[in-house]
Design a protein around this nucleic acid. Structure first.
Lengths: 231, 231
DNA sequence: TAGATTGTTAATCGATTAACAATC
DNA sequence: TAGATTGTTAATCGATTAACAATC
């Protein structure tokens, strides 16, 4: 039960991201990390307060949009002062779920899988890499980022035993669907999909398509437009 | 089968993608490759005509949307028959610019750069990989996908001499902006950016951010929501 | 107090969907 | 002809922006 009614009492409290908000529109979710990054910068510069107008200038959004986005999660601002940088940062961290540990594995230890293994950015977001899996005997046993590649046969047990949250799917397209089904059966909660085929999973599994093909197509299309208009 | 049609003289020319259309909204561009893929499948199954309704079922869009999207580029359909699969495919190829050769180089031959070098999908989209560059002497000279890694110092001359269209930017974040500026000076037309910092380029340069961080943040946010709602 | 800035409501803009006349 | 399906116009939906009362 979300009793949003008794807001007046708690309204002094700074820390309370009402992120209970059932469904944050994807459009908003996409902007949140960018607010987060800006606020981090400001904290490092010891800026204590920032107005929606100032943020808007830096980020290229309208100040209305920023105020509206943030109002989805509670009332973080102080009238005539703006937003408390530190407080807003902490709340965004909560909303984005960076604050608590999420476990991750990588499926497929080709070059892409290895690139992911060496990527530092997810530890900043609260992800901890727990395992890397491949089916190629020549690759099993190699070590990347201090983690030994395991046989993919061992993955289902590994996932359910360690209650792994997220799997980065970096296997060849032919194996994408099969592997995804294995992950779902084993109890994975989210799949970060780098394959080039569309993968079908049940509705309750979080699926993020990190589709590289779309980017390539977009560039190609825009080059074609350019070529035509310059003729 | 509906082969009643190979009739009408070339007076009703099939090939004419009026893609002169100045600015195709990004929302539409993103859907075009998906139409393209479906049509390719249909060609392989020797399907000659497809209605917007049939396409809609397969792709999960509304038939209205499909008709509207396609109408941006000309009138490809035949009333009461639907769309000529082959004709529509060829036109989409034209609009998406897959038909003509685009040259590409890769900047940064770490694991990510190598993954890109081995990726087959861009040759299907008309891209030809012409070079790979890195600044690390230990990497220069290695070969990936039959292409030797060159010293990044040689890149500017290489780009302008061969009139390279697109550069995949897979260098460390610290070097992203500097490298992008070099690319622009050398005359690159598009940048496919895999770095994790925002890169600034002039307006006339096509910039596609293949941002992996956003995907990670989205999963994290959705996991946090799930966690909360299950409590 | 006067000025600043929020949170929110109303207006606008853009994208999707529904409806339908045209026509094969 | 009767049925099917387009291309396009009108209606709806959702997201962004403008405006402003509340208030620090």
């Amino acid at each position: 039960m979300t009793d949003i009614k008794n807001k007046s009492n708690e309204s002094k409290n700074n820390f309370r991201a009402e992120a209970l908000v059932e469904d944050i529109p994807d459009k908003i979710i996409r902007r949140l990390p960018h607010y987060y990054i800006q606020l981090k910068n400001m904290m490092q510069k010891d800026i204590e307060y920032v107005s929606s107008e100032q943020l808007a200038k830096i980020m290229g959004f309208s100040s209305s949009l920023i105020r509206r986005d943030l109002s989805h999660f509670g009332q973080f601002g102080k009238k005539s002062y703006g937003y408390d940088v530190n407080c807003l940062y902490e709340n965004l961290q909560l909303i984005l779920g960076f604050g608590y540990e999420k476990t991750m594995i990588i499926l497929g230890a080709g070059f892409l899988g290895r690139a992911l293994a060496n990527n530092k950015s997810y530890s900043e977001r609260g992800y901890v890499l727990k395992g890397i899996f491949d089916k190629d005997p020549a690759i099993i046993g190699l070590e990347f980022n201090d983690i030994k590649v395991m046989d993919v046969e061992l993955a289902p047990d590994f996932i359910s035993r360690l209650e792994i949250d997220v799997a980065a799917l970096a296997v060849p397209a032919e194996e994408a669907q099969k592997t995804a089904e294995m992950l779902v059966r084993a109890g994975i909660k989210g799949i970060w999909d780098f394959t080039e085929t569309p993968v079908e999973v049940p509705d309750d599994i979080i699926l993020i398509e990190q589709n590289m093909n779309d980017g390539l197509c977009k560039i190609s299309c825009k080059l074609a437009q350019k070529k035509q208009s310059s003729r």
